[in-house]
C-alpha cells in the first residue's frame, strides 16, 4: 500500500528526512515511532500530498504521490496532529461540507454523513455546534470526516494526543474495527502501549532515517496475524533449574529466559493455557509468587533504540 524509497525533505537549514525507506502492505495496521523531530510528521505530510519531497519517491496504492496527488487524495484519509475544526458549524454541516469537498456524489452524501455520524457515535449531536463537543467527541468527528470518502489508507499523526483513557480505548477499538474492514492504517503515536495493542508492525525513525534496534531491525514485528503467542513473566522461590525444567515440560510452553528467581515463557494459546501452566507449576511444586505479562516490550525496545539518544 505504501512504498517509500530514499525519501528526503530539505528545508533551508535542516534535513527533516534524510533517505527514509518504508514498505507497508495492504491491510496492515502499521506504526511509526521515533523521538521529537525525527521526521514522522514530515513523512506523513508528504504521503498526504501536503508537501513535496526534495528527493526520493513515495507511492500509495501504486500511485506516485508527487506526480498524481489528486488520485492519491481519493484513496487517502489524513488526520494531522492537532487537527482543526470549524467551531461555529453544526456537526452535520461540518460533515456535509467535507462530503462535498471530497466529491462524494450528491445522491450518496446524505448516507455518507449518516454513516459518519454513526461511526463517531455522534448521531444524537448532529445539530450541536462543534464548539459544544468534548475533546474526545471532536477527535471522533475528525476521524469520521477523514473516513467520509471511504479511503483505502488512513494516515493518522498522533491521533491519541490529549485524549482521556476512555477515549483512547474507544479510538483503539475503532481503529481495530476499521482495519478489520480492510482499511490500511499508518499511525504515529507517543503512546507506545496503544501501538503495541493495535499494530502489526512498527517502523523506527530517527533524524529522518531508519533507526535499528540491537538486532539490526528497523521494523519491529509486534503481532503476526493468526498467532496466539503470549509472553508471561513468572517469579518464584527456590531452585531455578527445577522451575525451568517443569515449565518446559508443560504443553505449548517455551522458556525464553531463566534467571535465579524469574522465568520468561512463551505460551501458545489463550488465557486458559496460561491458567493451566500456572496450575501445572504449582502442582509440580514450584512456589510461584507472581504470574503476569512482562512490561510492554515495545516500550523496552524503544528505550533500547532511542533511550541514549534522548536529551
Amino acid at each position: 500500500m505504501i512504498e517509500v524509497e530514499q525519501i528526503r525533505k530539505k528545508y533551508k537549514d535542516t534535513e527533516a528526512l534524510a533517505g527514509f525507506n518504508l514498505s507497508v502492505a495492504d491491510g496492515e495496521l502499521f506504526g511509526l515511532i521515533g523521538p521529537n523531530g525525527a521526521g514522522k510528521s514530515t513523512l506523513m505530510k508528504i504521503l498526504a500530498t501536503l508537501i513535496h519531497s526534495s528527493e526520493g519517491s513515495a507511492s500509495i496504492a501504486g500511485i506516485d504521490v508527487a506526480r498524481d496527488p489528486e488520485s492519491v487524495k481519493r484513496v487517502v484519509g489524513y488526520m494531522p496532529d492537532q487537527p482543526g475544526l470549524y467551531q461555529d458549524m453544526r456537526v452535520r454541516e461540518f460533515l456535509e461540507f467535507f462530503a462535498a469537498a471530497f466529491a462524494v456524489p450528491k445522491n450518496k452524501q446524505r448516507a455518507a454523513v449518516e454513516i459518519a455520524l454513526e461511526r463517531s457515535n455522534l448521531t444524537q449531536r448532529g445539530q450541536s455546534f462543534v464548539e459544544e463537543l468534548s475533546f474526545g467527541m471532536k477527535q471522533r468527528l475528525v476521524l469520521a470526516k477523514t473516513l467520509l470518502h471511504d479511503p483505502k489508507l488512513l494516515i493518522l499523526d498522533e491521533p491519541a494526543t490529549g485524549l482521556d483513557p476512555i477515549a483512547r480505548i474507544d479510538l483503539r477499538e475503532q481503529l481495530k474495527k476499521l482495519n478489520a474492514e480492510g482499511v490500511t492504517i499508518f499511525i504515529s503515536s507517543y503512546i507506545l502501549s496503544d501501538l503495541e495493542d493495535i499494530c502489526d508492525r512498527v517502523a523506527l525513525i530517527t533524524a529522518g532515517k531508519n533507526a535499528a534496534d540491537a538486532q539490526g531491525q528497523s521494523v519491529l514485528v509486534l503481532q503476526s496475524p493468526g498467532s496466539q503467542m503470549q509472553i508471561y513473566e513468572i517469579d518464584f522461590l527456590g531452585d531455578a533449574t527445577f522451575a525451568a525444567a517443569r515449565a518446559n515440560e508443560a504443553p505449548g510452553v517455551r522458556v525464553l529466559e531463566a534467571t535465579q528467581s524469574r522465568l520468561l515463557v512463551e505460551i501458545d494459546g489463550t488465557n486458559i493455557e496460561a491458567a493451566r501452566l500456572l496450575q501445572f507449576l504449582v502442582m509440580a511444586g514450584v512456589v510461584v509468587t507472581r504470574f503476569d505479562h512482562p512490561a510492554p516490550s515495545l516500550e523496552r525496545r524503544y528505550r533500547q533504540v532511542f533511550g541514549a539518544k534522548q536529551p
Binding site: A48, L50, E70, R74, Y78, P83, G84, L85, Q87, F98
Partner: peptide, 17 residues
C-alpha cells in the same frame, strides 16, 4: 483564519484543490 484554526490541512487534503 484557516491557518490559525488549523483547518487548512483538511481543505488541502480534500479534493477541493
Amino acid at each position: 483564519i484557516e491557518k490559525e484554526q488549523r483547518t487548512l490541512a483538511g481543505l488541502l487534503t480534500s479534493l477541493l484543490g
